[in-house]
Amino acid sequence: MSHTVLVCDDAIFMRTMISDILAQAGFEVVGEAETGSQAVERYKQLKPDLVTMDIVMPDMGGIDAVREIVKHDPDAKILMCSAMGQQALVVEAIQAGAKDFVVKPFQPSRVLEAVQRVLG
């Protein structure tokens, strides 16, 4: 059975791209979220194997969403999506409980490597 993924990003463009990369690699994208609070809600509802989480999102940011999700499920496997130059935020996200991160602009191979590391 393939792994299920929840993709969280406020930009449709980014969500589409990530979903495409993952779908082509055989993952099942079971849901998308465009705000942090939506991500938390969908996580509880869908219980995906993996979450990709943008750091900067409206409403509730990605880092707060990580905290909420980890509070709910300490084993949650969350992969942060970051832009260059967000070192401090990435560090904070990992301290909050994210497992790994990828840096935009995305190269599919790097995304898949990170996903394997998180799931493996």
Binding site: A11, F13, M14, A83, M84, G85, K104, P105
Partner: peptide, 8 residues
């Protein structure tokens, strides 16, 4: 070129 795109 995507390599020159820092952020959207």
């Amino acid at each position: 070129e995507a390599a020159t795109v820092r952020e959207i």
